[in-house]
Nucleic acid binder design. Structure first.
Length: 790
DNA sequence: CAGGGCACCT
DNA sequence: AGGTGCC
């Protein structure tokens, strides 16, 4: 989220801390520290979206370290100065988006949080409807991990021991839930269903999903002209049905409608009920979603943020504050959310370090800028079992083989090839240290890895088992007594095999295999869009996309059985689609998914990219405000800010030339001017509904025509937003396709760098992050393997 | 805390 | 490799 970088221009050195919200691409906060001649420092706080002013703060360089820290902390605080502190008075002053210059980011995101009701129990009740009538508990070992609502009314709770559950409720029916296969499959069905409406879906565990529906909402807003007397679906936190305030919060109101429709879709297509929360960020959406349970939804309005935060009984209730953090906070004397809100940030920084401190404080304030990131396929697959005692190597081997055979089978269905194997154990020890685990990992030799994907699973299990035993002996001296209570086997570093290595008919078989290619492409382009922050508004006809995707799964599965190359086929399908010259027929919709401030941003690029002084990283330079760029470029710049002209501690407010009070309005955004298709309605009545235990794959088949259109639009979107401002799209379109692609991947790789990690040292780079991001998007191609037809 | 997963950070 | 966090 925050990246730091510097550039040298003559005798100036400019440090820039960037906090860029990639999700909205509308919030760019830049903090520059200019250090001319080591005598003065200029701190520049630039908020490009709503604040629309630039503040210079100049002070002497020779201030003490403490003073520096204090100033830094103060400056950081300015980021959250619009946050409603617990008193309603301050909230009402700074909360609304009225032209108060002091109030940044009304954060017009609309985030949904879905939370399925007693998920494991619901799955079991679908598998055996007779269980609906009885109190049902899902048992893992000696724990009831969840139970249905019949059981809850009889006093059974989550994570209760089997003994006390039976005591409370003797007629409790127990179903073993250690095998997660069915839950995992149903879980991915839910995620996939949500993704078919909007690819920006992030999983949290098996039963929760976040979804960023901002663009969907904005599209509806533009379409309906806000006119209709819209109301909220479901509950509104701390409001009664009497008051109608929907017109004050049209985005959230529309979000509540979308949430209701998606919950209905989940119910009609998958037979599952659940809760939803609607709010402006993930933290709040999650907190509010559980307000009314089960099977209800709640919207949180910005003016009630302090209410819901204040209502939390302890810091531990804040998502992101776990046991350890709560303890450390308690050691500082902090127990309530309000305590943390009011605690001096400097002290917090001392305890937790800068980033964590700021994060914790923001959490307490209900502030959460983290974007919804498409989860895609898992990055690791693991299988584990716990037990009372294993103390012989023979038993260890048997257990490992048992775990491996199910893990290898799952891995094979996935299609990717694991590069790393890890064995984890938990030893019994009297000293409270039950929880700590130890692990050893090693690379998987290629020939073994290949046996997994190619289907020689028996061989693979045997060889992996010997590998695992080697790792085991690195941890445990088997000549002495040992006592294990858990074994875990894990595949990670999952790689999609490239077509080049598998020469045999990856692409050709892909294209000759009748209908599946296009459908595969659809899904892959969608997921790619999701991870590249492009919009969802191109999903005009979700029905066709959802169902074609589902149908695709069945076909792809059979294809996978025939050829081991289905996944790279999907990947290549995407790459080909991605190539801009394929897009040909329709006029490009360049502006459609480009947020307003993006163009502001790019204009600074234009002015800056030529005739830079040597030694200047153009990437960094581009990010500077135009004024600064001009200044640095002007021949007189090096003498224009001599130390003599800097007065100590002086604060100067400079109105931004782009300031425009009306420019904030949603409808002003160029995003939606050129939308030519009607915006997607989620009207459930338009869709076929099915009985509970049926897979949608068998219900209906939609024609594939608009599939092509969507794919093309997707490819446009995935490219357009990446254009640096200095690039003329016309010129770009005339370049050879491969050059275009190369440029695009280059730009694409540069963008996440800003978001995640520093590139102070250009050589050091952010390879791991990039690799991970790339892996994520390609893994998304495989996501459909995580659910299969009944 | 349990239980069987996952992800992220260091 | 371990720790922390989430469900």
């Amino acid at each position: 989220m925050v990246s730091q970088q510097f550039l040298h221009v003559g005798r100036w050195r400019c440090y820039a801390n960037l906090n860029w919200d990639l999700q909205r691409q509308s919030s760019l906060r830049v903090w520059y520290t200019l250090r001319p001649a080591s005598t003065t420092t200029a701190v520049l706080n630039d908020v490009l979206n709503n604040k629309r002013y630039i503040k210079f703060k100049l002070f002497e360089m020779d201030m003490s370290e403490d003073e520096m820290e204090e100033d830094e902390a103060e400056w950081k605080n300015s980021f959250v100065d619009s946050v409603p502190l617990s008193s309603p008075a301050t909230a009402s002053v700074s909360g609304p988006s009225h032209s108060k210059t002091s109030g940044p980011t009304p954060a017009h995101r609309v985030i949904l949080h879905f939370d399925l009701d007693c998920f494991y129990a619901q799955v079991e009740m679908m598998r055996n409807p007779a269980l609906r009538e009885v109190p049902l508990g899902i048992q893992q070992k000696y724990i009831i991990v969840t139970c249905n609502y019949v059981a809850r009314e009889l006093g059974v709770t989550k994570l209760m021991s089997v003994a006390s559950a039976k005591e409370k409720c003797p007629q409790l029916v127990l179903v073993k839930g250690e095998d997660l296969t069915h839950y995992r499959e149903m879980s991915y069905k839910v995620t996939e269903l949500l993704m078919s409406y909007c690819p920006l879906v992030e999983r949290l565990g098996f039963d929760e999903n976040f979804m960023d529906v901002t663009k969907m909402v904005d599209a509806r807003l533009a379409e309906t002209q806000v006119s209709n007397n819209l109301s909220f679906k479901g509950h509104v936190y701390n409001h009664f049905s009497a008051d109608v305030e929907a017109s004050d919060h049209p985005s959230l109101a529309l979000g509540s409608h979308i949430a209701a429709e998606l919950r209905e879709a989940i119910h009609s297509k998958l037979g599952l009920t659940g809760c939803a929360g609607i709010a402006t960020n993930k933290l709040l959406a999650k907190l509010v979603s559980g307000s009314y349970k089960p099977n209800q939804q709640t919207t949180l309005l910005p003016e009630n943020v302090s209410d819901i935060m204040g209502c939390l009984s302890s810091l531990r209730k804040v998502p992101g504050v776990g046991h350890q953090t709560a303890k450390r906070l308690q050691a500082l004397g902090l127990v309530s959310v309000k305590d943390l809100q009011l605690f001096p940030l400097n002290d917090l920084v001392r305890e937790f370090g800068g980033p964590t401190a700021q994060r914790l404080r923001n959490l307490a304030l209900g502030v959460d800028d983290t974007p919804v990131t498409t989860t895609g396929a898992p990055q690791s697959l693991s299988d584990e079992d716990s037990f009372k005692k294993i103390s012989s190597t023979k038993d260890v081997l048997e257990k490992i083989q048992e775990l491996l055979s199910s893990l290898v089978e799952r891995m094979q269905k996935d299609g990717r090839q694991p590069q790393t194997f890890r064995l984890t154990i938990r030893r019994y020890s009297a000293t409270n240290k039950w929880f700590s685990r130890e692990s050893r990992q090693s690379p998987i030799p290629n020939h073994i890895g290949h046996k997994i994907t190619s289907g020689s699973t028996g061989d693979a299990v045997i060889q992996l088992a010997t590998l695992a035993m080697k790792l085991f002996h690195k941890m445990v001296d088997s000549s002495a007594a040992f006592h294990l209570t858990l074994i875990n086997v894990c595949f990670s570093n999952l790689q999609t095999r490239g077509a080049a290595t598998s020469g045999k008919g990856s692409i050709t078989s892909f294209f000759t295999h009748s209908t599946s290619p296009k459908k595969t492409q659809i899904f892959s382009t969608q997921s790619q869009d999701g991870s590249s922050q492009s919009g969802d508004i191109h999903l005009m006809d979700h029905q066709s996309s959802a169902h074609s995707v589902i149908t695709q799964h069945a076909t792809q599965k059979t294809a996978a059985a025939k050829s081991p190359c289905s996944s790279e086929a999907a990947l290549h399908g995407f790459k080909i689609e991605q190539s801009p010259d394929v897009a040909g027929e329709d006029p490009p919709l360049q502006e459609v998914s480009c947020p307003l401030t993006r163009s502001d941003f790019d204009e600074t690029n234009k002015s800056g990219t030529r005739r830079l002084p040597p030694n200047v990283d153009p990437e960094v330079f581009r990010l500077l405000p135009e004024e600064i760029q001009k200044e640095l470029l002007s021949p007189a710049y090096s003498s224009s800010l001599p130390s003599s002209s800097v007065s100590s501690g002086k604060v100067v407010d400079v109105p931004n030339i782009t300031e425009n009070k009306s420019s904030y309005s949603l409808t002003d955004s160029p995003n939606f001017k050129d939308i030519k298709e009607p915006v997607n309605k989620l009207d459930p009545s338009n869709r076929p509904t099915i009985a509970n235990n049926h897979s949608p794959a068998y219900v209906s088949v939609f024609p594939g025509e608009n599939v092509i259109g969507e794919g093309r639009l997707s490819s446009h979107q995935s490219s357009d937003c990446e254009f640096p401002g200095s690039v003329d799209p016309k010129v770009f379109s005339e370049l050879p396709p491969d050059v275009q692609r190369e440029l695009m991947t280059e730009w694409k790789q540069q963008k996440p760098v800003l978001k995640t990690t520093s590139f102070r040292k250009p050589g050091k780079g952010s390879k791991t992050k990039d690799r991970k991001a790339a892996g994520k998007s390609s893994q998304a191609n495989n996501l459909f393997k995580y659910f299969k037809p009944a």
